[in-house]
Amino acid sequence: MAKPKVAFYWCASCGGCEEAVVDLAEDILKVVEAVDIVFWPCALDFKKTDVEAMEDGSIAVTFINGAINSDEQEEMVHLIRKKSGLIVAFGACSHLGGIPGLANLTDKESILRASYLTGPTNVNQEKTIPLAKSPSPDGELHLPELKANALALDQVIDVDYYIPGCSVPKKLILDAVTAILTGNLPPKGSVLAPTRTNCDTCERNKTKPEKLTISKFYRPYEIELDEEKCFLAQGVICMGPVTRGGCDERCIKGNMPCRGCFGPVDNVYDQGAKFISALASLFDAKTDEEVQAIVDTIQDPAGTFYRFSVAKSYLGHKVS
């Protein structure tokens, strides 16, 4: 029997998801033996024309990481969708918009300005910023154009499955690949990770006081973090109550609160708003003044509660 054809593609991502695949180390060999990799721009030399030449639907599964924030990525994922049986959104950016989605809280001009002109480490005396089209002695040059907002993959093409995480843990990749190769898959649209929250499995949960109340919030660097106590009980924002488990609480075990990269659990759409609802139960405050004083200690609520999921929030981006 011919080996199933598999492809990997990347869009707006940091490379961490590619790294996660490579980090499978010897386990990747098992995967490589079982499949035929037909397209993987990060690791192997294939071109867009190679994909165009493939028969429609001939790739069994393509794993796509990264958010979609350029016209080129949009065009590529449409092409890949046509050529693939299954599309798996791989990693937080593809699943939820991820870190590139934070850009949706500002506008394109400000991003270009900050990245190319005003950044403290920039040296750019000619004030060059990338343009979709620019003249050159050899004719007009074309670059991919940045979109106004970063999108999750399923906001651009139909997605069959999601593997969450920034980046995706090894176990989830191997489980997903095994499920796909053995045809042992849950219903279309499923996130291939547990349905419970991080709090459900977190070791620190048992340190939570009977009635947990918070009277001031701290950012992780502002206090000495206890290694055993629940972060919320220390006044540190932890997204564990509303974040899907399956990462083995790796940040928490490294003494950092959960930032929410696995996204919401099933039946929750808007992770950040859900977190607001959950957090409100914990305030040690009953009057307008008391509540306001606590809210004042939270910096950047949108960027904190939706660190990975602005694109997949109800609003999706800053409106104007």
Binding site: L105, G272, I276, S277, L279, A280, S281, F283, A285, K286, D288, V291, Q292, I294, V295, I298, D300, P301, A302, G303, F305, S313, L315, H317, K318, V319, S320
Partner: peptide, 20 residues
């Protein structure tokens, strides 16, 4: 109603970040 009060202030702080 205390939950509502706290959500209200949290939302009020966050909404402008979404342009509302």
């Amino acid at each position: 109603n205390f939950k509502a009060l706290r959500r209200y202030y949290l939302l009020k702080k966050m909404l402008p970040q979404f342009g509302i």
